[in-house]
Amino acid sequence: MACCVCRLERQAQMNKAIAIEARNLSFAYQTKINIIKHLNLSLYKGETVVLLGANGGGKTTLGKLLTGILKPSSGELLLFGENLSMLPLFKIGQKLGYSFQNPVQQLFTVSVEEEIAFGLKYRGANAEEISRVTEQLMKLFEIEHLRDAFPLNLSWGEKRRVVLASCLALQPEYLILDEPTTGLDQKRIDILNRVLNNLRQEGVGMLLISHNQSFVRENAQRILRMEKGAIVDDLYL
């Protein structure tokens, strides 16, 4: 079994380019207790990885490290071959889409439409493209009727969909979604599954953190299990 996994892994490594790589990564908050302990991990382009683990295992912390929001206390992180700690956050944001576990943290404009358009607008896209992408995403996530609503007043599931749409508007090369299904009803989870599947066809890699069994089953190509700051299981399906 172990050997089989080994072989598969080697095969995968040969066929796929690495998107994100962590080498001997450790991290502690101000409390000085190591939340992430000497972690080694390679995430490949075009591959969908699901990260599982109990509450408090360090999944969100790992996600934030891989996105550059938190800085590792030791070890190395590479994003598409570049040293992640040397990259300013906005450069990372141009390649990587990240959605917070709590969508409130990510909403900062005065309307849903602006929220989705924000990144494109300030990265110099033309008006036509902005409106095309925004309309398309609002339609996809069924939030057209909320275009003028104040994002912070939306329901939880609506906020989640706005955040997902805002992430995807930038057409990231890799996605990290922290519990994207919490607060979504089954119909919206189905929509999300469809969206992610399309992205997969386009070769976008993703790391999904989730506790939702059916969502995991629907999406996972590889499953990582995290326990107390270490990866204890790494399985290809």
């Binding site: 996105t67 929001i69 300013p88 906005f90 944001g93 917070f100 943290q105 990510q106 900062f108 924000f118």
Partner: peptide
């Protein structure tokens, strides 16, 4: 602080934006 992080994660460099923006 959260907002500044969120802005940068959308790939926008606040520091180098033109003054008007």
């Amino acid at each position: 602080r959260d907002t500044m992080i969120a802005i940068q994660l959308r790939g926008v460099d606040f520091k180098t934006l033109p003054f008007k923006q």
